[in-house]
Amino acid sequence: MAVTIRDVARASGVHVSTVSRTFSAPHLVNAETRNRVLAVAEQLGYRPNRAARGLTTGRTHNLGLIVADIANPFFPPLIKAAQAHARARDYHVFVADTDEDPRVEEELIQAFTKQVDGVLLCAPRLGDRALARLRRQVPFVLVNRRLDGLPAVLMDVGRGARLAVEHLAGLGHRRLALLSGPEGSWNSRRIGEAAADAAAAAGAELTVIGPNSPTEQGGQIAAPEVARAAATGVLAYNDLVAIGLVEGLAELGVRVPDDVSVVGVDDIMQARLNRPKLTTVAMPTVAAGRTAVDMLLQLVGTDEPGPAALTVLETTLVVRESTAAAPVAERPARLSPGEVT
């Protein structure tokens, strides 16, 4: 015989309504009780009837997850974490890719409106006005984008950019370049602002090169401009751009890190496999996926949402083989004993 909701309630020692809320509105159930009910349901093999529950609650128990480019290795760990976290809460996730096109992004949000309870927007390219308008159609949480009034999960890329510039300056690099990301990227703006501040504080010159495609090809195309800028230290928008830059510089006879040090952002798997292994800013993608799901479920589970939530996750600098001391001619002169600045 099929396991019923009454069986789960009896085995859990709770009322039937508590089991129902555990699956339909988990945020309303005490965490300890919720976890006990879910464990018993899993042990008994109980599966709630989605169709019946949807008629009762008016919810689909589906979420949408929209990313800028599913081929970018940055996104799969986030997608996998979000899907697993949602599935543990009895939600399914539909994933869609915009190919960096804001028009496609808007079409996908509108298409999801009646199919999901809420949407996770990862690194959206839409403008502020469009996002503010679309939020009235479906609840959503932003990932790596800040907009007043909207809940968001941010990976502190500004801190990461400062750490990267300070690392390069600490190695003696005084002529730096920043390979920015695609036009309209909120992340690219944050990296640029933080890198400029850190360079100024370190007494280094920063040349901004871009916008660039957030791909390996984008880095290869930018290599000649980096060489013309005579930069000895480079911070790239992401790891793909950094890896492409290393390849492009090699074709020009410029060695990394002997002639030019390169830092990426993301810490994708290729950063560890590339030669030289890439120094990069590690982004907490798994934590971001899980946190964004929790935030979205809390949002769709209430009729009167409070102030928009904001979570900022810490980034770290991972030093590998693509950065080294600046060429001798680039390093600041050491003061002789007794000299003063």
Rank of each mutant, 00 (worst) to 15 (best):
M1K: 13
Q43M: 07
P276W: 06
P305V: 08
V16E: 08
V19A: 01
S185F: 10
A111K: 07
Y46E: 13
V29M: 03
I221P: 00
V265D: 08
T60F: 02
A81K: 00
T302S: 15
R36D: 06
A196I: 05
A86V: 14
L120M: 15
Q217T: 09
L206K: 01
S336P: 01
V263I: 13
R159V: 14
L78E: 07
E106I: 00
R53W: 07
G58S: 09
S261V: 05
D69I: 06
D197G: 06
A196S: 12
V208P: 00
S261N: 05
C122V: 13
V29E: 10
S180G: 10
V138K: 15
I66K: 04
Y91C: 03
E225K: 07
V29A: 11
V208D: 00
A271Q: 04
L310A: 13
D258Y: 04
E225C: 04
G338M: 11
A11W: 08
G118E: 14
S188C: 10
A288I: 12
V16S: 03
P102Y: 01
E166N: 12
G253N: 14
L44S: 04
V67M: 11
A333M: 08
D69G: 06
V143Q: 03
A169H: 12
E225N: 08
T57M: 11
P337I: 15
L206F: 01
N212S: 11
A194K: 08
A31E: 15
L108M: 07
R275L: 12
D99C: 03
R53L: 14
N30M: 00
L240M: 13
A308K: 05
D99H: 09
L171K: 10
R159G: 10
T311G: 00
H61W: 09
L297P: 04
A329W: 09
A71R: 03
A39P: 00
N30L: 00
Q115Y: 12
A329M: 10
R135Q: 10
A130R: 15
N187E: 08
D117Y: 12
M155V: 12
L120D: 13
V19T: 08
I70M: 09
H27K: 07
L278Y: 02
L252F: 02
E205L: 07
L313A: 09
A288K: 11
T315E: 04
P124N: 14
N72V: 04
V265M: 09
N212E: 08
V265W: 02
T232H: 06
H85Q: 13
T60G: 06
G264V: 12
A223V: 06
T60H: 03
S24T: 13
T60E: 06
T279P: 00
R275Y: 13
S20Y: 12
V208I: 02
V16W: 05
R135N: 06
L235T: 13
N72A: 01
V19H: 06
V262F: 01
A333W: 03
G306S: 05
P182H: 11
E321C: 03
L245N: 08
G244E: 04
A222R: 08
F74C: 05
V29S: 04
A195S: 10
A222S: 15
F23R: 11
P305R: 00
L134K: 05
T291H: 03
L63Y: 14
L168K: 02
S24R: 04
G127C: 02
A31T: 14
L163W: 09
V119R: 01
